[in-house]
Amino acid sequence: MAIEVRIPTILRSYTGGAKVVEGSGDTLADLLTDLDSRHAGLRGRLVTDAGALHRFVNVYVNDEDVRFLGALDAKLNDGDSVTILPAVAGGAFGFAAAAAIASHAVSARATAAAR
């Protein structure tokens, strides 16, 4: 048995377009190393040079966020399902638009303070 890993669209260039790949490992770190041996470069998009999960990447083991299960040290078992998703809880529009004009909010505060 293996661990099933769901790959988001934006990372499928590393998996030859595959939506789901299989891997193995006792921890998430082991799994990512194993995956990288067949899908070179994938690990580098998920893990920073400092060895932590990328801020804008969320990884779930059986639907639970690994950051609360030990992050890269999270234990894995055969048959687990791992899902990788970009961090945009709440949908693209609100977040993207709000982030884009956050600087406006700051400048508006400055305007209000000045008048």
Binding site: P8, F68, A96
Partner: peptide, 24 residues
């Protein structure tokens, strides 16, 4: 999600993972 790459991701400024015990 409509993202073109991971770096377009977004985490709300209010978010502090230390407040949560688990996240599904």
């Amino acid at each position: 999600y409509g993202l073109r790459n991971i770096d377009e991701g977004y985490v709300p400024e209010l978010y502090d993972a230390g407040v949560l015990s688990r996240r599904f």
